[in-house]
């Protein structure tokens, strides 16, 4: 069953007089529970694609269905709602909120969905346990290592039980050991049935996924099926 379905999607940026097609007539279908990696040289449109998939942006042309819902033409408030409810973002630079402690950071997406404080706190504690940070709940992000911060970010992305997890080079800022731990967690999540889309530069990481999409100049260059 497709969880994501893109048809003939184009994203054009206008910089002064210059128009730049960051994505050109893309077609892509991703099924529920799939683990996808996206690769490609810098500037090939990977982040642009992930932002569109994560509803942070809308396509210039074409269609995008997420979990059966047409996203391409939604207005801002609904887009925000879907972002918070159906997608979970993991960034290269963690992007935790500095003045909030770990538990509060994990609660943020639930807060914007209107969940009560008691419920969201309980859920945030569960999630912290899943990513192995139960002993750090009251710490501020600055008191944590990069790997730990990224684990908080994963917990936060899972907060509203999204249909898809989107990660833009999640291990890009980490040493190999911490990076490995993050990949372990993502693998576990995949095994539990989460749909994952991960941008990476690393062939070894791509090999862990089921399918790798290679982007080049805003087009899909080729697709690798990594399942033997």
């Amino acid at each position: 069953m497709p969880i994501i379905s893109i048809k003939n999607m184009t994203k054009t940026f206008q910089i002064g007089d210059v128009r730049l097609d960051a994505l050109k007539n893309l077609d892509l279908t991703i099924n529920k529970g799939e683990y996808i990696t996206i690769m490609g040289p810098s500037g090939s449109g990977k982040s642009t694609m992930l932002n569109l998939l994560g509803c942070l942006d809308t396509p210039t042309k074409g269609q995008y269905f997420l979990d059966g819902q047409d996203i391409a033409t939604l207005e801002d408030d609904l887009l925000s709602k879907i972002r918070g409810k159906k997608t979970g973002f993991i960034f290269q630079s963690y992007n935790l909120i500095a003045q909030l402690n770990i538990i509060e950071n994990i609660e943020v997406p639930m807060y914007y969905q209107g969940m009560s404080e008691t419920l969201s706190k309980e859920r945030a504690e569960e999630l912290a346990e899943i990513v192995g940070l139960s002993d750090r709940l009251k710490h501020k992000p600055s008191e944590l290592s990069g790997g730990q911060q990224q684990r908080v970010a994963i917990a936060r992305a899972l907060a509203n039980d999204p249909v898809v997890l989107l990660a833009d080079e999640p291990t890009g800022n980490l040493d190999s050991k911490s990076g490995y731990e993050i990949l372990e967690i993502l693998n576990d999540l995949h095994e539990k049935g989460k749909t994952l889309i991960v941008i990476t530069h690393d062939d070894r990481i791509a090999k862990l996924s089921e399918r790798t999409i290679h982007l080049l100049d805003g087009r899909i260059d080729k697709e690798d099926n990594n399942k033997r």
Binding site: D76, S80, F89, N95, I97, Y112
Partner: peptide, 16 residues
């Protein structure tokens, strides 16, 4: 600015 971006990415509406 960045905090605002994070919040928006995590589901905050403009009015939030």
């Amino acid at each position: 600015t960045r905090e605002i971006g994070i919040r928006r990415a995590l589901g905050a509406k403009k009015k939030d």
